[in-house]
């Protein structure tokens, strides 16, 4: 499903960080553990098609993603990868429904109100359809950002410290949701975190070595 080989990355060419080869099969849940600065986010961005590595290959569902040209990669990312970040980063100029419609529009998919309602209902946000972003609580906003990541039925869900700014209750809820939603869509889930609360919830882990 996801294969990483001979990956190296560096902010300068003289100092490259090698990343271990990795193969993750479909439907697995994996916690990517490591201290801050250990390169979790960098690896996640490389896997997510946001940051081209210096060399090596990332292949997802049989497609070597950095072999795709600019806008093709954008479309591939939009339709195959769902991203969840530490902060929700919802677009405040739009309401909840429009944030999700924008997600479908930017991926070049048809705008489907039924699908939006379905995903929001799954995440217990059915009544927030018309809400403005600044009316949401932090936990709700994070759940909307999960809805956004799941909306286009991705094959791979990448979450970068999704619980860092949430309390215990919300953090457990978010991890639970990510797991159950990933299962529902048969998607692979990778959660990068240094949060010990997550570790106990996801048995399969990959430990990042300190890069610097």
């Amino acid at each position: 499903m996801l294969k990483i080989s001979k990956l190296a990355f560096g902010y300068t060419k003289s100092k490259l960080f090698e990343i271990e080869d990795l193969e993750i099969s479909s439907g697995q849940h994996i916690a990517l553990l490591g201290q801050s600065g250990s390169g979790k986010t960098t690896l996640l961005h490389i896997i997510g098609g946001l940051l081209a590595p210096e060399r090596g290959e990332v292949s997802l569902a049989g497609q070597s993603i950095y072999a795709l040209s600019g806008s093709k990669l954008d479309t591939f990312r939009a339709t195959h990868i769902g991203l969840v970040f530490q902060k929700p980063h919802l677009i405040k100029a739009l309401n909840v429904a429009d944030n999700l419609k924008l997600t479908q529009y930017l991926a070049g998919l048809p705008q489907d109100n039924e699908r939006i309602k379905e995903v929001l209902t799954n995440l217990g946000l059915a009544d927030k359809l018309k809400s403005q972003i600044n009316e949401l609580s932090q936990g709700e906003a994070q759940r909307v950002s999960i809805a956004r990541a799941l909306l286009n039925r991705p094959k791979l869900i990448l979450a970068d410290e999704p619980t860092a700014s949430l309390d215990d209750l919300n953090s457990a809820k978010v991890i639970d949701l990510l797991k159950s939603q990933a299962d529902q869509y048969g998607a692979t889930l990778i959660i990068a975190t240094h949060d010990q609360r997550v570790k106990s919830l996801i048995p399969q882990t990959i430990e990042m070595q300190q890069l610097s």
Binding site: L50, R77, A78, T79, L83
Partner: peptide, 10 residues
């Protein structure tokens, strides 16, 4: 950046 990550081209 989010829009880009959601598939918007440059």
């Amino acid at each position: 950046a989010i829009m880009r990550s959601l598939g918007a081209s440059r």
